[in-house]
Nucleic acid binder design. Structure first.
Lengths: 145, 145
DNA sequence: AATATATGCTTAACATGTAAACTATTTATA
DNA sequence: TATAAATAGTTTACATGTTAAGCATATATT
């Protein structure tokens, strides 16, 4: 809020606080991803595939918090980079399976430690109890919705 | 997370929780804004202008948490709807002043009560102390950044 | 005053989000 | 089984985000 005007009630509202928090966190992540020429969105895909060998598009979109229609282009670009591949499913010919390539899999252990370090650092700037309350309260809001 | 796969550590990470929380909140807001044919982004602009008669573009972008380059198009579309106007500043000819039109100002009291009600409802689903801890912890993260 | 630098906004190119429609299958139902 | 309905993914059109560059004006330096 360097030059920002003040509208206290608005500024401290939950949506604005969520946006603002992301606005300070994501650039830090992006700086890491940029070193490996991927976007934060692309990272979310890779991160899911890392733990789930093969995913249908719907699962993948859901797990990475991407709208299905956005996923298409993101996967296209990951394929162009040789990080994932798309295979039509055999059982259900509507489905598509997405999986990491060797190159994609090789990328993850290079990035993950940096991200983990970043996260640990972030977490250490907060009281653990407050942190947990923050997470739990968000979880509660999500579940109540 | 209807169909979402489970990656507990990832799912509960702060960025993902922030995204997920926004993902449940923003659609509720959008439903209100849609009734008045504006987007959530446009609303943030109007909301700021409501309390600040006339804003330079930089202030406005900062206050509404929009990148300056996005602001241009958003303002263009708000002008097309007749809700705001752009006036070149007299003192500094680089600057532009943005302000509500009569129509724009008239829109606000129609939307605000619905948004306030929505917010009150949201807040009532949480323990006030937890809520405040959540907000404070985010504020702390923002300031630490 | 002349030049350099900074500032404020805009433009451009591309990635992603949003909403709705569309296609090809599959599954359910008459 | 023929038809309707649901599902999986894609496409489209448009709004917005991201990054970098561009342009005009203003300010600082010499």
């Amino acid at each position: 809020m360097a030059k920002g005007l003040t509208l206290d009630k608005f500024d401290k509202s939950l949506p604005m606080m969520l946006y603002r928090t992301l606005d300070v966190l994501i650039p830090k992540y992006r700086a890491v991803f940029k070193q490996h020429d991927i976007s934060e969105t692309q990272w979310r895909i890779l991160r899911v595939l890392w733990e789930h060998e093969s995913c249908g598009a719907a699962e993948l979109a859901d797990s990475a918090l991407l709208p299905a229609s956005s996923l298409v282009g993101v996967i296209d670009r990951l394929i162009a980079k040789g990080l994932v591949q798309r295979t039509p499913s055999e059982n259900d010919r509507r489905k598509v399976e997405v999986r990491l390539t060797k190159k994609g899999r090789a990328l993850l252990p290079k990035i993950t430690p940096k991200i983990d370090a970043l996260y640990k650092d972030l977490q250490s700037s907060c009281d653990p109890k407050s942190w947990q309350t923050m997470i739990n309260t968000m979880q509660q809001i999500i579940e109540a919705a």
